[in-house]
């Protein structure tokens, strides 16, 4: 799939743990210039994070969420269900590219955004300073709001439709178009990440545990605490008796 810009679905595309993202989105107060004659500087990082096409751990997102900057409050209407996946064919309903069809490039759920590859683009000047790529113009894809600007396509008649989730007789959850009842299968690109295109094709590295060893069950329940069990395994014998202690 063609990607004009570096915008990616950072929600699922990068295999980055939640703790790391939370650390990047720092929420607290920072005191600077303390123990000086001049008064201390206080930065309040207590505002809600504004999610963007840039991932929170990148420099661009950190600049945009600077506490010294003034910004208006942002209200994102919550959705009941999410129907859009990477690799889906969609039609654009509004804007200059209205009526055109394309594939979904990236998703940002926090803003109800979707990027369509090669569509709804804008020419931007790369930079005006003396760095590499000076004076270059690039096409940048702009976000589209889900259900309003973009609609999924029914595969039977290739026209935009409204979608719901329904269950098959086997108990599988599938997307179905309301108009014709056609099933919209989830594309294989949806599970692709930066490390692998498909989950089954991933090759473990040097430090990864092999899948056979991962599933192996070695736990046998015993009437023992963790420490007592280890002492028995290593052959450590404790002769001293434990005295009374107080917890408070």
């Amino acid at each position: 799939m063609v990607k004009l810009t570096a915008i990616l679905n950072w929600n699922g595309f990068h295999n980055i743990p939640k703790k790391y993202i939370k650390r990047a989105m720092f929420n607290g107060v920072v005191y600077e210039n303390t123990h000086e004659m001049t008064p201390p500087v206080i930065y309040n990082y207590t505002k809600d994070w504004v999610f963007d096409e840039y991932a929170p751990w990148t420099k661009m997102a950190q600049i945009k969420n600077d506490p010294r900057k003034q910004r208006s409050t942002l209200i994102v209407p919550p959705l009941r269900e999410w129907f859009f996946f990477r690799g889906d064919k969609v039609q654009i309903m509004t804007g200059k590219d209205a009526g055109k069809q394309g594939l979904i490039n990236a998703i940002i759920k926090q803003r109800n955004w979707v990027f369509v590859s090669g569509l709804n683009c804008k020419l931007t000047l790369q930079s005006s300073t003396g760095v590499a790529g000076d004076g270059e113009y690039t096409m940048v894809e702009k976000p589209l709001v889900v259900n309003r600007d973009v609609k999924l396509i029914d595969p039977s008649d290739l026209k935009p439709c409204e979608v719901t989730f329904r269950f098959t007789e086997d108990g599988e959850k599938v997307r179905v178009s309301k108009r014709t009842g056609q099933v919209l299968p989830i594309p294989p690109d949806a599970e692709a990440t930066i490390d692998y295109a498909k989950k089954s094709t991933y090759k473990p590295g040097d430090k990864d545990t092999s899948p056979n060893e991962l599933v192996k069950e070695t736990f046998i329940p015993k009437y023992m605490s963790f420490e007592l069990d280890l002492m028995q395994e290593y052959g450590i014998k404790e002769t001293k008796q434990k005295g009374q202690t107080y917890v408070y």
Partner: peptide, 12 residues
């Protein structure tokens, strides 16, 4: 869920 399968010695 994966760690629950392992014995105390393996966890150590």
């Amino acid at each position: 869920d994966e760690l629950r399968l392992k014995s105390n010695l393996d966890l150590h």
